[in-house]
Each structure stands twice: as structure tokens, then as C-alpha cells.
Computed example of a mutant assay.
Amino acid sequence: MQKETGEKKREYRWMKRLLAFVLSFFFTLPVFMLVYPRIPSIEIPVGTGIRLDQMILFMFIFLLLYFLIYSLKKYYLYISITLVLAIGLSHFTGLYSLQRFSADYLSLLTNLEKVSESSKFVTKTVPFTREELLREAIDYNNPELIDFARNIATKHFQEYKALSKDSRWIQYFSIFKEIENKWIYMYDPLYEEFFSKASNTAKQLSYNNKFKGDCDDYSIIIAACIRAVGGEVRLVRTNVLLDDGRTVGHLYPEVKIGDKKDFENVAYLLRNLLFPKEIKNKPLRYFLDNKGEVWLNFDYNDHFPGGRYQSNIRISELKV
């Protein structure tokens, strides 16, 4: 009799541990997704990189929940109901929807080394030429330009806004799509360098629904629109070697996304939802600065943000 009682107690303890394990595993992932963006990255440079921060955080949350749930085993039902209600409340209030959770989870699975490329550059510290004229042309605080930027920033991809950690990212990509798709390259007057104000370039749509200008004019209007909706952008001067052996100057914009964890979400959005046909199997190209911040290439070489660079030489940079 005592033997049977002991076996039932052991079986009961085993069942309680199994239930605690299942509940802990079920609730670890949503807690992990909420905490993960707030801890620093820890990566072991082996192969394509081992994300130690992900492994440590997941195990810590799981073990902590397991300990708490098993310790309060008399209240399994109440704990489960409370956690389910918390998840439901978060979803219906928009604090953290299930759609956003799904996007964040898929972003987490994104291997940046396989789908992106942190380009290696030869960086020079040459003073930025004609800076004053460029800043004057980037009239992002012009009321008409602000209205224009806000309109094109909300023209595309609004259905994916809830899946983006920062709603401005969707606006940046909408700006890129609207300007790059309608851009016609035009040379400056012979032997002169002309900077068209962003507000003037925007008005060109009234003629034939196209923007016109060279790389300077393109960079100027991209920079102005990004700044007008609260983004950070900089212009980079470089030299490009042509097929005939000549070297010409080039200017292009880069937009600040955030750190590598932010870029995980951006890479998922760009590749799977926003520009899947344009990107296909191509890498997303960006510059990683000395603070660990990702600056995504917004040049017009490809039909998506993060396209190829024309050159790996960075002669000078201008923070707008």
C-alpha cells in the first residue's frame, strides 16, 4: 500500500513537472520577444556567427518561469489564465499584437550574414565640398516640402506599419519607392554643378509625374524627405571607376536604421513583404559605423533600399 502511494506521489510530481515545463515553454517565447530588443548583442564569431545573447536570454527566461510556475504549482490554473489574459490584453490594446509577435519571431530567425552585407570601405577624411550649398538645397523645413514628404511617406506599405518596430522605417521605404521609381537621370548644365532644392524637385511631378536630376539632386530630395519625417540621413561622396577607365564623382544617401537587432526586423520586412520581387536573392547592403549603428544604402542603383554601392570608397560624409 505504501509502495503504491509512493509511486502515485512520484507520478504526480512527474506530471506537475511536465505541466510546469509545458507552460514555461509556451510563455517563454512571448516574454523573450519583449525583452530581447532591450539587451546588448553578444555574438561569437564562428561561421556565420553564434548569437549568444539569444541563447542565454531564452534559457534564463525559461528557467525562471519554470521555477516560479513549479513553486506555485497549486495555482497552475490561475497562472495560466493570468498569462493568457496578459497576452490577449496586449494584443487587443495594440501594445504587442499577435501579428507583430509573428513578424518579430520571423525576424529573429533571419540570419543577417546570409541575407545582408556589411560593406567594407576605404574611408578618407576629406572635407565635404560645397557643404553650404548642399545644406541650403536640403530644405527639409520648407512647409511645402514637409507636406510632400508626409504624403509620399504614407503612400505605400501602410498595411505593414504594425509589423515594424519603428513606424518611421515604413515611411522611409515608402519615400524611397516613390522617388526611386519615378526618377529620371538628367545631367547638369555643361561645365556647371547645379543643386536643385528638394522643394523644387518635388514640384516636377506636376509636369509628367516624374522627378528629374543627377545623383546630387536625388540625394538632396531623399535626404530632405527623410529628415522631414523625423529620420537621420547622411550624404556620402565617392569616386566611381567607369568601364572606359575614367573616374567620376558620385553622391548618395544613407539612412540610419538602428543597431543590428533593429536591422533584423528591417531585413525581414524588406525581403519578405516590401520589396520581395526586387530583392529576390540579393544581399541588403549597409554601412556599420564605429558605434554599431546600421546605415542602409538608399542609392538608386537597385530598385530597393540596401542596393549595391557604386564604389567602396568613402571620400567624405555629410550628416544632414
Rank of each mutant, 00 (worst) to 15 (best):
A202W: 00
T238D: 10
N281V: 06
I170L: 01
A162P: 02
G47H: 14
S119D: 02
L23G: 05
R13I: 11
D216H: 11
S116W: 00
N312Q: 12
N151K: 12
Q171W: 04
D166R: 03
Y36P: 02
G249P: 07
Y140N: 11
V115C: 08
Q99N: 09
W295N: 02
K161F: 05
S24M: 06
K73S: 08
V35D: 00
W295C: 00
E232C: 00
A198P: 01
E264T: 05
I81K: 12
Y140E: 00
Q310N: 07
K73Y: 08
R227N: 08
L163V: 03
F263Y: 09
E43V: 11
K120G: 02
K319G: 04
G47M: 09
S316T: 06
I313Q: 04
M1L: 07
P40V: 05
P253K: 09
S41E: 14
M1R: 11
D166M: 02
Q171Y: 05
D244T: 14
A228S: 11
H250G: 07
T5Q: 09
E117C: 12
A153E: 00
V84Y: 10
K260M: 05
E117T: 09
A137T: 02
P40S: 11
L64C: 11
M1Y: 11
F121K: 01
G230R: 06
D244P: 04
R150E: 07
N209A: 13
Q2G: 15
L106V: 05
L274K: 12
E132L: 03
Y300N: 08
Y75T: 14
E178W: 05
F304T: 01
G249S: 12
S97N: 08
T5W: 14
G94R: 12
E317C: 06
S199P: 11
P283W: 04
N181Y: 13
A86H: 06
Y191S: 07
W169I: 03
K161P: 00
R314C: 15
Y191V: 10
S219P: 12
K177E: 08
I221A: 06
Y76G: 04
I138G: 01
P283R: 00
N151A: 04
K3I: 06
N141Q: 12
K319E: 15
G258M: 13
E264A: 07
S80T: 13
V236P: 02
P37L: 07
Y187N: 10
F25W: 09
Y300E: 04
Y96H: 13
I257E: 10
Y76Q: 04
R51G: 00
R271I: 07
L89V: 10
A228V: 07
A223T: 15
